[in-house]
Amino acid sequence: MGDVVNLVVVGLGLVGRRHADAIKRLKGVRLTGIVEPNLTSEDIYDEYGVPCFASLADLFALSKPDGVIVATPTPSHVELGLEIISNGCAALIEKPLAVSSVEAENLVKFAMEKQVPLLVGHHRRHNPLIKKAAEIISDGEIGNVRAVHANCWFYKPDHYFDQAPWRKHKGAGPISVNLVHDIDLIRYLCGEISTVQAQSAPSQRGFENEDVASVLLSFENGAVGTVTVSDSIVAPWSWELTSGEYPIYPKTSQSCYKIGGSHGSLSVPDLTIWKHGTERDWWSPITATSIPREASDPLDNQIIHFAKVVLGEEAPLVTGLEGLKTLRVVEAIGEAAQSNSLIKINDFAELHNPDDVTSVHAVTA
């Protein structure tokens, strides 16, 4: 990557700061501004040495960056994304892409019509261990995927909710807040999800939302899956505590995903393949092989990838359409938990999003 790509970060909360800090230390990219109405220009310049803008309008009135990273609360994603794309600027928007798939579809279609890159910050796909897992599966190492189980159990302390009371309200439970990450990886590794069923239980802390849910998935390729998620279970089995991706979480030696195939099984993130010997036979010895992989910060990898997309050197790994598909599944899970019914993803998409986004993507990709 010979050229330097100029990037701007919108929103300087915890995630926004991680993006800004990464851009400052990475080669090939340059932080040229920050959009943050709640901080002074002096504060931003003292910390990052770049100008601070109160709005995107102020930014685009004075400069034209190559790409903009949006790390603001989800309700503002679509409005900001539309403004960025209107200015012909590539956008990387944190997940989830929008509050609803209806809003997300409008943004995705607009980006496709303008032929401006729109990426979604599902950064876990940029983790080398996930790339290796995808390679193992696509190379047929475990045969055809037949089943997957994901465990997403962790305990959020009371002060987590007290610091941001919106986390106690309906729609802010672990289905919508946390499961979007895991559903995206399940789609990436195991294929498109065709139907969902779900059960949830009310928060034992007395909040409006659920604090535990169980999900049954079926896939277009014939596989099935189960997922359980809770923010009120003390356990070592979650991506946060098993992947070592973010040092603020204490790492355990466990795995949170188990992917079963016709010739073997794979656990993630420890990347252990389980196989019988010459015969697939439950009476035959079964062996475990740990697969080596590189280690690097997926957030850094995502920014480098974003820059390469801007330069036309790579196709987006997580397009706006990918973010939309993941959001549709999570929404369907929430609806299934409320209605205790089986939800077909295609029917759900047609009901809530009557226009065909896929056909637009096929034309402009």
Score class of each variant (00 low, 15 high):
V70H: 09
G121A: 03
G13F: 11
R25E: 01
N178V: 00
L129G: 04
S41H: 11
L241N: 11
V70W: 09
A295L: 03
E79L: 12
T252F: 03
G11A: 01
I233H: 07
I345K: 06
V215K: 09
M1E: 07
I345A: 07
L56S: 07
I286G: 06
D162Y: 14
I84T: 04
E208F: 13
S100Q: 12
L216H: 15
S267C: 10
A57G: 10
V9D: 11
S55C: 10
I291K: 00
Q204I: 01
P236W: 03
V35A: 04
I93T: 02
H149G: 07
P128E: 06
L342R: 07
S339R: 07
Q115R: 14
N144P: 01
N301C: 01
P73W: 09
D231C: 00
K109G: 02
A54H: 05
S255H: 15
P316K: 05
D356E: 08
V4S: 09
G33I: 05
L31R: 10
D300K: 11
R18P: 06
L39D: 08
A172I: 00
V120H: 09
P96F: 15
N346W: 14
V68T: 04
I175F: 11
G11M: 00
K64M: 04
H149M: 08
I93A: 02
K258L: 14
T74G: 01
C52P: 02
V108W: 13
R280G: 00
V8R: 13
S267V: 13
P316G: 05
L118T: 05
Y249F: 12
K64C: 01
E192P: 02
W153D: 03
N346R: 11
Q197P: 00
L299Y: 11
S284Y: 06
P96E: 15
H19P: 08
T195I: 00
G323N: 01
G140A: 00
V309C: 02
K344F: 14
